[in-house]
Structure formats: C-alpha cells, structure tokens
Design a protein around this nucleic acid. Structure first.
Length: 424
RNA sequence: GUGCCUGUAGCUCAAUGGCAGAGCGCUUGACUGUGGAUCAAGUUGUUGAGGGUUCGACCCCCUUCAGGCACCCCA
C-alpha cells in the first residue's frame, strides 16, 4: 500500500457502485431533458484560455482552471464550464440552426480549487440551455425542467427549493438607492455573502463596500421584501408561467440571489438544500442575453442552468434516494465447473446461453461447488447451472434458483428457455 | 493560496512515551453434488510518508502527502 501511487487530489475513482450511480444519474437526466424535447450535445474538453478570458475575468481563469501550454506554447485549459463553448458552437453555425434551440449535456469539468465536501477538482455537470428565446416563459421552462428532475428522483419541497431573482429588478433597486454602476459589482458580491457572514461583519463589509448608513438600511429592507417581484413584469410573468407548469411549490422569490457569473442579465436562480446539510447551491442558472455577441456572434438571447454531480449526489445519498441495486453484477446466470473433465461442457453451455440472450458467467476453473455457489451469492447472481457427472452422462443440466433454493434438471437444449422463465 | 482538525489491519475504531489490539470482513474446516445461518480454527500492519528528540515513539517536535471543516472562490 505504501508505495501505491495515489489518485490526484480532488479526483474520484468510479468503482462499479459509483459508476453505476453516475450512469443512473445520466440516464435520469437524459429522460428529463428529452421529455422537454432537448437535444444532447457536447463541446471539447480542452479549450483555448481565450474563450473564458473574454468573459469571465482573466485572473479567475488562471487561478481556478487547469491551464497549461501546449507544445506550441499556446495556453489551453481543461474546460471549467460549458456555457462559453455552447455560445461559440452556436455562433459558429448561427445561420444554420433552428431557434429557439434546446440543448442539454452531461460531461466532465475541471476546476483547480481546494477540494472539500461537495467540491472536487474533477466533476460532472448537467447543462441545459435554450437559446433564441427571451420570454419569461422560456425561463420558466428551464426551471420546470429542474423541478421535474427533483420530482423524478424523489426530492420534495421539504428537501429542495429554487430561489429566483432578476438582475434587472435588482439593478433598478440599486439605482433607486443612488448606488452607482461602478459600485454595483462590489455591492452584488456583498449581497451574495449575506448568508455566509455574521450580521455585524456583513454590515461592516457593506459600509466598506461603499454603502452609506442610509443605503444600508434601504438594502436590508429590500432584501427582506417578499413581494418586490410584483414590480417586475418579467417576474410576474415568470411566476405565472411556473404556476401553469405546476411547479410553484418548489420556487420562491428571493431578492438576495445574485449568482456569481457576470454574464447573467435577467432572471437568475439557484436551488438549495432546504435542511442545509450541504450549504452549497445544488445548481445555478439564469438568463444571458449578451453572451453570443460577446464571443463574436450575432446577438441571441439565452437561458440555462448547470448542476454538478457532487452536491446532488451527496443529497441523494443522504436521503436514501439512490437506487438500491447500483453496481450489481449484471450476470443472470452462473455456470459452475464441476471438475476439469466437465469444464468444456460448462463453457459450451455458457456460450449457448449467451447466444440465447442471457448474461452469463462461467466459473473460470474447477472448484468445490460450495465455493462457486457462495461466489454467485455474493455477486447477487440469481441462477446457477450445474453440469456434473450425472448431467454430463444424460445430456442435461441442473438449474437452481439461488433465492428460493428450488432446482430442476432439464435437457440442455431447453436450459435457456427454462432460465428465462425462472428470471420471470 | 490561508487557518484549524484528522490519518493505526480490507472496513469501523482502541492502545496515558514501555510486547500494536478488538469487532466486522476474509481463508479453511465441520459439510469430498449445492450458497446465505451456526460453530471452530486461522489470517490480516513499514501505525500515511520522511526526518528529529528519547534507553525506548502510534503517542512529543519538524517537514511532507492525503482527507475533513472554515476562509478564498464558485465562470
């Protein structure tokens, strides 16, 4: 053990159980995405650093992405997110695509950060985007997709909540308080940190960020408001659409949601674990109406969200919502090997059973039957087929159901049919 | 990148600076053509790694690696 080369910090080994969980999640996400008519796509895992530097702030990319020079000296990066790639892909075929386009993806991403609970350096993300529509109803559709996902995996309103705000409404509020455009980024950051600091420190931080005492009071009032959304036509239409889509129970207006991304322009939202076991956002998203133009395309509005596999995996696991049989051996049948003399008969029986469509393991060597049965038992294989001296002499095979203990001896040619019936 | 905590058998954890242990697991047998249960026996270690202090280090000190928590950040 001591000389074993360890996995890289922040990466995960996917043993069969974990791999099955990932595949299961992928399959659920596909089903949900496709039920809303979204098409699957993917971008490259490697991108030029310039793709992100254009929009996300250069220091951030350099400090939090895996960046290295290729052999020609150009800086390339393991993609830290998908939206810029999506924008480039759409811009690259802007005239040939059918709008509004609805695309989804599930793949790996990398961020060079310090790993901790719910955060790794290599993770998978579900991305869902609609480009070419700018209605609040389009925003509502994206939120309905993620709520449908929550419902599908068994997360109820007592587990998760989608908090929604609107950047334009927030901007108008800030302007109304006399906050200048130059101050807005730092004020946004200050708002974003409200839940992460104690009240006194947060107040002090707000004053440091340039708020006057009077503005601080106004800000607190604004952030406590439950019905400010009624002043935003977009939010009124959004919540109306969410009602029609049947997902109102999962959503709430939250004037404190700002999201970290610079490119969001309108609706922003994030989903949180209600009980707060994991204090990290489960997913985040919003409307980005300028991103296409920013990567060199014609202006096109977009809205989308991304969900990482790590936090949702922790939540599903803690609530017992992952399927119970993940990572089980896929074999339906084990063919035992009585002794070396009978091994050939077992191998050919296994081959014929596979030919008939069954998943079959043949024990790889002659061994005591108890050992072979125990092996099958531990792998969760339901059925066993035995060819011993008696069966070999008669051209038969003994079939046993390992869960009930029942067994029967049949002609070898009928074995596949019998086994299928036993599988039910 | 910063601070704090943790690291002992495959797993969960004991051992006040003085012989490295327990439970579970695993192997074998009771049962040489039938698994799960029971019983019995056996097995499991460079105490994360490297250095230092000491007659003697799992224990104290330094360094390093890994994990957790909180910062930072979350595109």
């Amino acid at each position: 053990m001591k000389n074993m080369i360890q996995s890289l910090k922040g990466t995960r080994d996917f043993y069969p159980t974990e791999m099955a969980a990932r595949t299961w999640l992928y399959q659920v996400l596909r089903q949900i995405s496709e039920s809303f008519g979204y098409q699957e796509y993917d971008g490259p895992f490697l991108e030029s650093i310039n793709l992100y530097a254009a929009k996300s702030g250069e220091e951030l990319v350099k400090e939090q992405s895996f960046v290295f020079p290729d052999r020609g000296g150009d800086l390339i990066t393991l993609r830290p997110e998908l939206t810029p790639s999506l924008a480039r892909m759409v811009a690259g075929r802007q005239g040939q695509l059918v709008y509004p386009l609805r695309w989804w993806s599930f793949g790996p991403f990398w961020r060079y950060e310090r790993p901790q609970k719910g955060r790794t350096r290599e993770f998978f993300q579900w991305n869902v985007d609609m480009i070419g529509a700018n209605s609040p109803e389009a925003d509502a559709e994206l939120i309905a997709i993620l709520v449908t996902f929550f419902r599908q995996v068994g997360l109820g309103t007592e587990d998760v909540l989608v908090c929604i705000n609107n950047r334009r409404l927030l901007d108008a509020q800030l302007s109304g308080m006399g906050i200048t455009p130059e101050m807005k980024p730092s004020i946004s950051r200050w708002i974003d940190r409200r839940d992460k600091m104690n009240p006194e420190a947060w107040d002090a931080y707000g004053l440091e960020s340039g708020l006057s005492a009077a503005q601080l009071v106004l800000m607190k009032e604004m952030l406590a408001s439950q019905d400010l959304w009624q002043q935003s036509d977009e939010l009124v239409r959004l919540f109306s659409a969410l009602e029609a889509l049947g997902v109102s129970a999962y959503v709430r207006y939250d004037p404190g949601v700002v999201r970290g991304l610079d490119y969001y322009t309108g609706t922003v939202f994030e989903a949180q674990d209600v009980r707060g076991d994991v204090r990290r956002a489960i997913l985040g998203g919003g409307r980005y109406d300028n991103l296409l133009a920013d990567v060199g395309g014609e202006p096109l509005p977009g809205v989308g969200f991304a969900m990482g596999d790590v936090v949702i995996g922790l939540i599903l696991e803690s609530k017992g919502l992952l399927p119970a049989d993940l990572g089980k051996c896929p074999a339906d049948v084990i063919v035992t090997v009585f002794d070396q003399e009978r091994q050939g008969a077992s191998l050919s029986l296994a081959a014929s059973l596979r030919q008939a469509g069954l998943n079959v393991i043949c024990y790889p060597e002659a061994a005591k039957l108890p050992k072979q049965f125990k092996y099958a038992d531990r792998l969760g294989i339901r059925l066993a087929a035995v060819i011993g001296p008696d069966e070999a002499a008669n051209g038969t095979v003994t079939l046993k159901d390992l869960s009930s203990g029942d067994q029967t001896t049949v002609a070898r040619a009928e074995a596949a049919q019998h086994l299928k019936e036993m599988l039910g």
